[in-house]
Design a protein around this nucleic acid. Structure first.
Length: 470
DNA sequence: TAGCTCGTTGGACAA
DNA sequence: TTTGTCCAACGAGCT
């Protein structure tokens, strides 16, 4: 059989360690790489959509260097693929599996319809280390707690990452393709692409370089340095993992090798990679986690669901709480936020402001270039207390104490908060360049007083949590 | 099966 | 300044 294989790329924009591509290239049949601006892409937030555009461009370039093309189409996935099958005579449509509910709904529809039409519609692994149905508790259920999950997978064999195919067989002619620029994937990005663009690391080669640098310089001290937001102590690879520019398998083996070489922080790093898998494990087994309280009894909790002034100030980095504001500004300017800072702003929103985690989740979804449906849902529900984690309700992060502990020299604070500084840093000033004029912010203004007294806010939250009647 | 141990990331306060 | 204890109590997962 020599009919072409349509290789439908989604969040797997790489050539190496790509099981579907490897098998397609090895088949000898022509391969038609495709990326669709489909219903799932349409629903992305501003920053992830913009960042996706960069990734797609990089992937198209990488494919062109192999003599192939990335065909772009816009519309519902099933219709686009059915059209492409008809136009090219393709006998197969292959892709890398996704595990979030929206993607599963789309993929199920596609697979069913294509199979009915006699097309070899097939999905492959590649997005996670361990597919959700391959990890089971002793009684055959799914894991709800991370540590047992980690213990269940940490000693598993993971196949080595596969190199990119040396050659990708191409069809005799290429189907028509949209022009990526016409998709305007960055149109909703409020802050200038030039601001964030200078900070992103795009594409498979760059991601691999980033991993190499982290393994060489960062992983040894990762367990300690990762907690300090002003230090460059993390891998920063979430941005690349999100779009599949690098595979979790590549991270796994790099981490394992580092562990064998005695690098101290290697195991902590591996655990973080597995946390990402755990998030996909949860989203697969309990898809409601993306939009509803994982523990339904929390539906009775009196979250504030309104867009209050306090919520607006949280979004705009104007709470008067330096750690919270620095973090929210960091996210607005760079499209990322340090992990510890994510916990702190989430705790502040859901506890001190008693606002619903969905508000924060949506804002993150709009602002983060590394937005990921599984990790974000899990993280927000963990912070709020409604998630699959036995976090006691009295665990309330104190942003002031956290600042003392994890930013003792004030580097993070000064990096992002210009007000009150005689000579503000360029990064702190860049926030005021990035925000819309309608926000009416100026670096020369006084830094706002705290909108919530931390002690009172904590107590209000504790009282509300204690009074919950479930 | 019943019992046991433990739970990513904390805070406040006492000693 | 540092260290220990309590804040509650449940359910996951193991034995």
């Amino acid at each position: 059989m020599t009919s072409p294989i349509i290789l439908w790329f989604r969040r797997d924009l790489r050539l190496s360690d790509h099981p579907a591509l490897t098998e397609a290239a090895a088949s000898g049949r022509p391969v038609i790489p495709v990326f669709l601006h489909d219903e799932v892409v349409s629903s992305l937030g501003a920053a992830p959509k913009w960042r996706l555009g960069l990734s797609v461009a990089a992937h198209a370039k990488a494919l062109s260097e192999k003599g192939a093309r990335l065909i772009l189409r816009r519309g519902r996935a099933l219709e686009c693929l059915a059209d492409l099958v008809a136009e090219t005579g393709a006998g197969a449509v292959w892709w890398t599996r996704a595990y979030d509910p929206d993607s599963i709904a789309r993929d199920t529809e596609v697979k069913t319809a294509l199979k009915q039409a006699g097309v070899d519609a097939r999905s492959f692994p590649g997005h996670v280390l361990f597919e959700p149905w391959t990890v089971e508790t002793g009684t055959g259920g799914y894991y709800r707690v991370y540590t047992p999950f980690w213990k269940a997978v940490r000693d598993r064999d993971v196949a080595e990452a596969r190199p990119a195919p040396g050659r990708i067989p191409v069809p005799e002619g290429w189907p028509a393709s949209d022009d990526l620029d016409d998709w305007h994937l960055g149109a909703a990005m409020r802050r200038g692409a030039d601001v964030v663009g200078a900070l992103v690391t795009v594409g498979e080669d760059a991601a691999r370089g980033r991993l190499g640098a982290f393994i060489a310089e960062g992983i040894d001290n990762y367990d300690e340095a990762r907690d300090f937001p002003a230090r460059d102590g993390t891998s920063n690879l979430s941005e690349n993992l999100t779009y599949g520019e690098i595979s979790p398998v590549a991270l796994w083996h790099a981490g394992r090798r580092a562990m064998q070489e005695g690098k101290r922080g290697a195991e902590t790093f591996l655990k973080e990679v597995v946390w990402r898998d755990f998030a996909y494990h949860l989203v697969y087994h309990t898809p409601r986690i993306t939009h509803a309280n994982w523990r339904p009894e929390w539906d009775a909790f009196p979250w504030n669901t309104e867009a209050t002034k306090a919520v607006t100030r949280w979004k705009r980095g104007r709470t008067g709480e330096p750690f919270v504001d620095a973090a929210m500004r960091e996210m607005y300017v760079t499209g990322t936020m340090h992990n510890r800072a994510r916990m702190i702003v989430a705790s502040y929103l859901t506890k001190h402001l008693l606002s619903h985690w969905r508000i924060g989740q949506r804002w993150f979804e709009d602002c983060l270039i590394d937005w990921d449906p599984a990790s974000n849902a899990m993280g927000w529900q963990w912070a709020a207390g409604s998630g699959p984690d036995a976090t006691p309700y009295f665990r309330v992060f104190n942003p002031a104490t956290q600042l003392e502990k994890f930013d003792p020299d004030g580097h993070y604070r000064r990096r992002w908060i210009a007000e009150g500084q005689a000579a503000p840093s360029a990064t702190a000033l860049s926030f005021f360049d990035a925000v819309p004029r309608s926000w009416g912010l100026a670096a020369a203004e006084a830094y706002p007083a705290p909108i919530v007294n931390l002690k009172e806010g904590r107590q209000t939250a504790l009282d509300a949590y204690k009074a919950r009647d479930f």
